[in-house]
């Protein structure tokens, strides 16, 4: 009963609107379009700001990105070595002596020469005496 009354009411309002403003729907369509167009343009605007703030570290273009990846991989080992050296220096400054130097050297070697041939280190053969 209530639903029927509401539907009758909406239909009556629509008929009145069509009578008073026959081109009003165009206005509605333009307003909604402006909102969505603004949102669409805004997302490009934000992307541009993001690119502009990081472009020095990651240049665009396929070849440049590959080069960047290579540079990144090479730099990683160097950075690790630098970390090791920094730790060694810090240790040396803190307590001068042989121990910190040895720790520093071990860390440096750990970071710079950590490539090893993998083994299981487990013998699964049951022993025959």
């Amino acid at each position: 009963m209530t639903t029927t009354l509401v539907l009758l009411d909406v239909a009556a309002k629509a008929a009145r609107m069509a009578q008073q403003d026959p081109y009003g729907w165009i206005m509605t369509l333009v307003a909604v379009s402006v909102v969505f167009l603004t949102l669409f343009l805004l997302q490009y605007c934000y992307r541009f700001i993001g690119w502009a703030s990081t472009r020095e570290e990651a240049p665009t273009g396929v070849h440049s990105q590959k080069a960047a990846r290579r540079k990144d991989a090479a730099g990683k080992a160097g950075a690790e070595t630098e970390v090791a050296a920094a730790i060694a220096t810090a240790l040396s400054l803190e307590a001068s002596g042989e121990v910190p130097a040895v720790i520093g050297l071990a860390l440096d070697r750990y970071f710079s020469e950590s490539v090893h041939d993998k083994e299981s280190y487990i013998i699964t053969i049951k022993r025959k005496y």
Partner: peptide, 14 residues
């Protein structure tokens, strides 16, 4: 790899 020699020799003997 040289550092794995003990393991490889022991396993080979088994």
């Amino acid at each position: 790899e040289p550092r794995n020699t003990r393991f490889r020799v022991c396993r080979a003997l088994e």
